[in-house]
């Protein structure tokens, strides 16, 4: 059972989303951990294109104080 790990499908590809808005905090939150770090592809299951777009979006959001660079307790 444990060996049968099904391949994750990129959720953005699945939903046919091509542009990731950096102002969409709710969406970006799902792909960062509590500390505000971007989740790795192997965890999020994103494809390369979308992971790149996501990374860009998160970094833009950080500049605009929509996302945190680091979680509050570690700042």
């Amino acid at each position: 059972m444990a060996m049968m790990r099904r391949r994750k499908i990129c959720r953005f590809c699945e939903n046919k989303i091509y542009y990731l808005d950096y102002k969409d905090e709710k969406m970006l939150r799902r792909f960062t951990n509590e500390r505000g770090k971007i989740l790795a592809r192997r965890i999020s299951g994103n494809c390369a294109i979308h992971q790149r777009n996501l990374t860009r979006a998160v970094k833009r959001a950080r500049v605009m104080a929509i996302m945190a660079f680091a979680s509050e307790s570690y700042r």
């Binding site: 959720r11 699945e14 939903n15 799902r30």
Partner: peptide
């Protein structure tokens, strides 16, 4: 698709 009514629906993981 980003702003309007057609805002892309994002499914929760």
């Amino acid at each position: 698709r980003v702003y309007g009514d057609k805002k892309e629906d994002y499914k929760a993981p």
